[in-house]
Nucleic acid binder design. Sequence first.
DNA 1: AAGATTTGTTAAGCTTCTCTAACAAAGAAA
DNA 2: TTTCTTTGTTAGAGAAGCTTAACAAATCTT
Lengths: 169, 169
Amino acid sequence: MSVKVKKGNKKLSSNMEDYLEAIAVLKKDRGVARVGDISRLVNVKKPSVTSALSVLSGKGLVVHERYGYVEFTPKGKIIARGIKKRHDMFVRFLVDVLGIDSQTAAEDACRMEHTVSSETFENLTKFIEFVDTHPDGDRPEWLKRFDHYSKTGKRLKCTIKEAGRRAEE
Amino acid sequence: MSVKVKKGNKKLSSNMEDYLEAIAVLKKDRGVARVGDISRLVNVKKPSVTSALSVLSGKGLVVHERYGYVEFTPKGKIIARGIKKRHDMFVRFLVDVLGIDSQTAAEDACRMEHTVSSETFENLTKFIEFVDTHPDGDRPEWLKRFDHYSKTGKRLKCTIKEAGRRAEE
DNA sequence: AAGATTTGTTAAGCTTCTCTAACAAAGAAA
DNA sequence: TTTCTTTGTTAGAGAAGCTTAACAAATCTT
């Protein structure tokens, strides 16, 4: 016989993901997460936070007693960690590869992080790893070429060093 | 003295962008866009399309008379073109760079395309250009290295040709 | 042309998420 | 402790978008 209780096992909306993420950030930065801080971070009014918390609570992701701090359940903590991972990954891609300024990157990441399939997430992660763990020097040669292409619209046919020498002429 | 008519100049919601995009696709593929086809493409019921069309109509982006085909206004056509550009660019990135299968890439692109800032869009466009207009051969050497890294988790320290030779051993 | 089928619209209602206004609890200060 | 201030909650309402059910127009068939 089937269970009647709402399981709340559906996928989270991106709004709810935002709340979870904000809570994670606050707990990390200040130790505790309070309604007012969440509302500031997510950029909504406090009543919206209260109602979001009751939703998340219903899904078994946070614990929140009236007028108290917000805590994660173990399940909530795991999900929040996953969200943060995706977020950071996007920021890294936008900043490290595309050269977006970190302010804009953070904003874009906040929106993009809710939309990717796990395939894309995985491959993008690998891509960033590939870039960031590059052996020779901080930044791969080809990315330096991209930087140049991005700035000037022109391809470098030679190495950066040669280009540097030329530029000095 | 200020105009009282609703100008409808606000930014489009991503839902409305989806409708515009669907209309563009249909007009391109079949010459005309009808409510039923749009509803299938966007994956909503027909009444949702009808009401979306009245919104888009109110914003001066489409023309739609009862029981008739849907047409773009000049303004609508321009906007739809922009949306399609972003969409295609994402698909190219996901497929050409990350190696996502085109089915998943299309789905992801549909969601991601609504979320990027113009900075990110521009830089991502440049990045794709940089990749796709690579001079020597179809695919840049470093991307081949990424493909390998992605598949095996191991970096190639040598050229692909050498790796190929090794693999044959 | 008459009826049957397909296609589109209207009406009404639900869900999610937001807001403002008003109130209640907690904490700080007197 | 009584009052003031800050913080949080409740209630009520509204925007967007979606759905189903019922109806109307258009099109196809014969």
